[in-house]
């Protein structure tokens, strides 16, 4: 767990955690060794008419992320993330900061399946 992505509409750790994955505005990437953050815009995911989750998952994979923390992840995005070896953690924390603490404290368990069914 070195490079963690969080879904958010904001720019910094104090920003709200976005429960959406595919159509989240940004991914906040936290590097655990450097303790640094950077922002990747989910431009392509949000501009997809369909398959936003898949597109967002590709963006995450390309950014070299190994862990994703988000509200809900659909089955298609999950399939891509799983194939690329990215671990997914579902979390309903209010902010990215809180989500990070819960993750580092070991209070979140990696999802084995998508937590939402069907066509989302």
């Amino acid at each position: 767990m070195n490079t963690i992505a969080f879904t958010t509409a904001g720019q910094e750790l104090a920003a709200a955690l976005d429960p959406r994955f595919g159509r989240a505005a940004n991914f906040l990437i936290y590097d655990t060794t450097q303790k640094s953050t950077r922002i990747i815009e989910n431009q392509q995911g949000r501009s997809a008419a369909q398959g936003a989750g898949i597109q967002a998952a590709e963006t995450i994979v390309r950014a070299g992320v190994d862990t994703l923390v988000t509200g809900h992840c659909g089955p298609k995005a999950f399939k891509v993330l799983e194939a690329a070896g990215v671990k997914v953690f579902n979390c309903n924390a209010a902010t990215v900061d809180e989500a990070l603490h819960e993750l580092l404290a070991g209070r979140l368990t990696a999802a084995e399946n998508s937590d939402v069914e069907g066509h989302w």
């Binding site: 369909q50 398959g51 891509v80 194939a83």
Partner: peptide
């Protein structure tokens, strides 16, 4: 054009 197929790794 529809994300019906995606290459991963």
């Amino acid at each position: 054009q529809f994300r019906g197929i995606v290459a991963v790794g």
